[in-house]
Design a protein around this nucleic acid. Structure first.
Length: 260
DNA sequence: CTCGACTCCTGTTAGC
DNA sequence: TGCTAACAGGAGTCGA
């Protein structure tokens, strides 16, 4: 599913939409428009204008307009960004590989005949105007050791829950967090505030490295733990049967032998 | 403020 | 073969 990694690919794809004049907007799905947005309002905001910037904070893609307005795009679990019929990501975990036209939830047409689309079977994504960027925590791709410490300290919530809390650290989803904690040898269920300085340092190093690795490799589903992330799966490091449980409300796989 | 429980969405798959 | 139920996870809301 799209996590920080996939949204970054979408952002790069969306740069191909910059400087093109918008001459039509298709917003057929009212559910997909968030926070009071309507087809009329978003059409009025976009028509005749251009995108001048493509930014990303966590899993939120931000398209800057030439009049200072910002279009916020979210992709939920199965959302794809498609520019001029080219998909930003081909293989999306848990999403169908098909691309039905009926799943096009939001389309921006340009006067050169091309278009930018969100195709989302499950409708867990959405579109909003001028999203509140301050609600999101620091982006996981560039997080510093002290920022990570601030996000974890004094919390009794499970480490995994805290890392997935987008208000504190933005961009990490279920697969990425399982991969990072597996690499760092840390138990997802441990209290976030219980990490010793050396463990926090280890977590930071693995977090940054995992994001870098998966950005280079091509997706958040290409981690080393992912292949074993099935019932009865075994730890790729030491062969132990992985523990499957719910942590922070999400299905969690971890190794009972090397994650403490 | 913090944190867990619940809810929403629907294509895919496991199981009978 | 054909059906049903469980499953996947991002994000918002609610209540203790």
């Amino acid at each position: 599913m799209p996590e920080l990694i996939e949204i970054e690919y979408y952002r790069r794809l969306a740069e191909g939409a910059l400087g093109r004049v918008i001459d039509e907007v298709d917003a057929p799905d009212a559910w997909f428009l968030k926070r009071g947005l309507t087809a009329r309002i978003v059409t009025d905001a976009l028509l005749g204008r251009q995108f001048v910037g493509a930014r990303r904070i966590g899993k939120l893609l931000l398209m800057d307009m030439d009049d200072e307005a910002v279009l916020g795009l979210r992709f939920g679990m199965t959302g794809r960004l498609v520019l001029d019929d080219c998909a930003g990501v081909d293989d999306l975990q848990y999403a169908s590989r098909r691309r039905e036209a009926a799943w096009d939830r939001f389309t921006v047409h340009f006067d050169d005949g091309g278009d930018l689309r969100i195709n989302d079977a499950r409708r867990l994504g959405g579109v909003e105007l001028d999203p509140d960027e301050a609600r999101l925590g620091v982006d996981a791709a560039g997080i510093t050791p002290s920022q990570l410490t601030a996000a974890l300290d004094h919390s009794t919530a499970p480490l995994k829950a805290r890392l997935m809390d987008q208000h504190r650290v933005a961009g990490l989803g279920n697969l990425l967090v399982d991969e990072v904690l597996w690499r760092a040898g840390l138990d997802p269920a441990r209290a976030a505030g219980s990490l010793a300085p050396a463990e926090r340092k280890r977590l930071h190093r693995h977090l940054r490295r995992t994001v870098d690795d998966l950005l280079a490799d091509g997706g958040s589903h290409l981690g080393r733990l992912q292949v074993a992330r099935v019932r009865g799966g075994r730890c790729p490091k030491d062969g132990a049967e992985l523990l499957r449980r719910t942590v922070g409300g999400r299905t969690t796989y971890s190794c009972p032998v090397h994650q403490h």
